[in-house]
Amino acid sequence: MPIPAQHHAPPPRWTQLPVWLGVAACLAGLAAFRMWSEVAAGRVAENLALMALAALLAWPLRRWRGMSWASALAVVWLGLLAWMGGVLPVVAVAALALAAIVLGRLVVREGPVPYALLTGLALVAGVLGWLLPLPVHQPWTYGSLGVLAVVLGRRGLARDLRTMQTGWREQVAAAPLAAALAVSLAGLASTGSWLPTLQHDDLAFHLGLPWQLQLEGRYALDPTHQAWALAAWAGDVLQAVPQVLVRAESRGALNLLWLLAGGAALWRLSTLLGMVPGLRWATLAAWASLPLVGALMGGMQTETAASAVTVALAALALEPSGAG
């Protein structure tokens, strides 16, 4: 969710030098250690096939709806997630994001939307974390509170959504090919969200909290059942919100939200460093192509959320005085 840059003097061009040094170091490492010899040709072919399929599905939107390639591809990848992981989890996570933005604006009254989103998610996790042992975790409580938040904050929320929409169109138009590549790679990373929950840590611990809240309406802080029961993770609490709402696991959709939040924070960081739009999109593409990013999409590890928050904190440290 790129956002328009605020009007302040950009830093000098030499601040982009670390980015190019990183590219040079990567190429040098590939050459020195012959990394191409370790590439799994079959996996590369699968990824290229998925990207080609997404482009094929996006072509009608581009041809007959006049959408940019980046926007059309974004719609396709989101549609594929809804197909593979369920429409209701996607809707529930979208509702959580809207409510989080409204709540975040109570603290972050001005400034980029990603700051408000992440702040709101932290508030939700914190409040629900204290209420875990109480029998209040029901679809009607979550739903009614979420609707109330959105209704009360609808004007500010509408303004934020318009800002994101305008910013997206402007930045895509500034570098359409780079934008399409970044969206394609982010979509490819999101395919990890299509998979069912299979990782050992998730099955042994992380899924316990959302499922207890769904089935029992409360969480038993009982270490005799699980050694980590007294250390409920904020990420697991947030996983429970859409699951309680729609009575179905929603890990994939929430992980996509973390991916988008991390990308938006990285965009803000690169903007503050004075990068041109094409280089900002290239930064997002490089980040989305990291193998660990795609791997995190398939699990419930805390690094998924922590990555987005860490990048946002780095961007916040570079904000002009008084921003945010």
Rank of each mutant, 00 (worst) to 15 (best):
His200Phe: 15
Val150Met: 12
Ser144Trp: 02
Ser144Gln: 07
Tyr115Ile: 05
Leu134Arg: 11
Leu209Gly: 00
Arg159Ser: 13
Asp202Thr: 00
Gly153Met: 04
Leu121Ser: 06
Asp202Lys: 00
Pro133Asn: 11
Leu131Ala: 15
Gly167Arg: 01
Leu209Ile: 09
Thr141Glu: 05
Gly167Thr: 14
Leu152Trp: 10
Ser184Ala: 09
Tyr115Arg: 14
Leu215Ile: 06
Leu117Thr: 11
Trp194Val: 10
Glu170Asp: 05
His137Val: 07
Gln138Arg: 09
Thr163Gln: 15
Val151Cys: 12
Arg218Asp: 04
Gly208Cys: 09
Gly126Thr: 00
Ala173Gln: 13
Gln212Tyr: 07
Leu118Ile: 03
Trp168His: 10
Ala174Pro: 04
Gly143Phe: 06
Arg218Trp: 04
Leu132Ala: 02
Trp211Ser: 14
Trp168Lys: 01
Gln171Ala: 11
Thr197Ala: 08
Gln138Asp: 09
Asp160Gly: 14
Ala180Arg: 11
Ala220Met: 12
Ala204Ser: 10
Val147Asn: 13
Thr141Pro: 03
Ser184Arg: 03
Gln171Ile: 02
Pro196Phe: 04
Ala186Val: 05
Val147Leu: 14
Ala174Gly: 02
Leu185Asp: 11
Leu203Val: 13
Ala204Glu: 10
Ser184Met: 08
Val136Tyr: 07
Leu145Trp: 02
Arg154Tyr: 13
Ser184Pro: 03
Leu221Cys: 02
His137Met: 10
Ala174Thr: 01
Leu198His: 06
Val127Tyr: 10
Ser144Met: 05
Leu213Pro: 01
Leu157Phe: 03
Leu195Tyr: 02
Ala173Ile: 03
Val151Pro: 03
Leu132Pro: 09
Arg155Glu: 00
Leu123Trp: 07
Arg154Gly: 04
Glu216Met: 11
Leu145Cys: 13
Pro176Glu: 09
Gly120Glu: 03
Gly111Pro: 09
Asp222Glu: 06
Leu188Trp: 00
Ala149Thr: 04
Asp222Thr: 00
Val124Ile: 14
